[in-house]
Amino acid sequence: MTVRGRGQSKLTPNGISFRHFLISRSIPWKDISGVEMRHHTARSNEWWDLRIVRTSGRTLVVPGAFASRRSDPKFEAKFVIVHQYWMEYK
C-alpha cells in the first residue's frame, strides 16, 4: 500500500518533475492539456487529489497533493500554483 500524500513535485518553467518512492519523471508543460482536482469515494472514506491531464488523455497523480477534507486551504493552494505554472508556461 502506498501513502497518497507522500512524494514531491517540482515546478519549473520547462515542466513538472515528480518524485515518488523510487520513481522519478518529468513532463514538459507543452505535453499537459489540463490540471484538475479529483474527488474519490470508497466505503466510508473520501479524498481529493491533484492530477495533470496529458495531451494523450492519460492522467497522472501529482505526488504530495492530497486532501482528506472537502475544503483544505493548503491543498487548494497547491492546485492554484500548479495551474498558474501550467497556464504561464504551456
Results as ranks from 00 to 15, higher is better:
Gly57His: 07
Lys90Tyr: 00
Pro73Asn: 04
Pro73Trp: 09
Thr12Tyr: 01
Ile81Asp: 05
Ile52Ala: 07
Pro73Arg: 07
Arg54Met: 12
Ala42Arg: 11
Phe75Ala: 10
Leu11Asn: 02
Asp31Ser: 13
Thr55Cys: 05
Asp31Ile: 00
Ile52Met: 03
Val35Met: 06
Val3Asn: 14
Arg25Ser: 13
Ile52Lys: 03
Arg25Gln: 13
Asp72Val: 06
Trp47Pro: 08
Glu88Arg: 12
Ile81Ser: 04
Asp72Arg: 03
Met37Lys: 15
Ser9Gly: 04
Lys78His: 08
Leu22Asp: 14
Leu50Trp: 01
Arg70Asn: 11
Glu36Asp: 08
Asn45Gly: 04
Asp49Cys: 11
Arg19Trp: 13
Phe66His: 15
Glu46Lys: 13
Pro73Gln: 05
Val80Phe: 03
Tyr85Thr: 02
Val35Arg: 02
His39Leu: 11
Glu36Ser: 15
Ser9Val: 10
Asn14Val: 07
Ser44Phe: 11
Val61Ile: 14
Trp86Gln: 05
Asn45Gln: 13
Ile32Asp: 00
Asp49Pro: 03
Ser26Cys: 11
Arg38Cys: 12
Arg70Cys: 08
Asn14Gln: 15
Met1Leu: 06
Val53Ala: 11
Ser44Asn: 12
Pro28Tyr: 02
His20Pro: 00
Arg38Gln: 14
Glu88Cys: 07
Glu76Ser: 10
Gly57Gln: 03
Pro13Ile: 03
Gly15Glu: 02
Ile27Asn: 02
Gly64Gln: 02
Tyr85His: 11
Leu60Gln: 10
Thr41Cys: 05
Arg38Ala: 14
Val62Arg: 02
Asp49Glu: 12
Lys10Gly: 05
Arg38Pro: 02
Ala67Asp: 04
Tyr89Ala: 06
Trp47Asn: 07
Ser26Ile: 05
Thr2Ser: 07
Val82Pro: 01
Ser56Gln: 01
Val61Trp: 00
Leu22Glu: 13
Ser17Gln: 12
His40Val: 09
Pro63Ile: 06
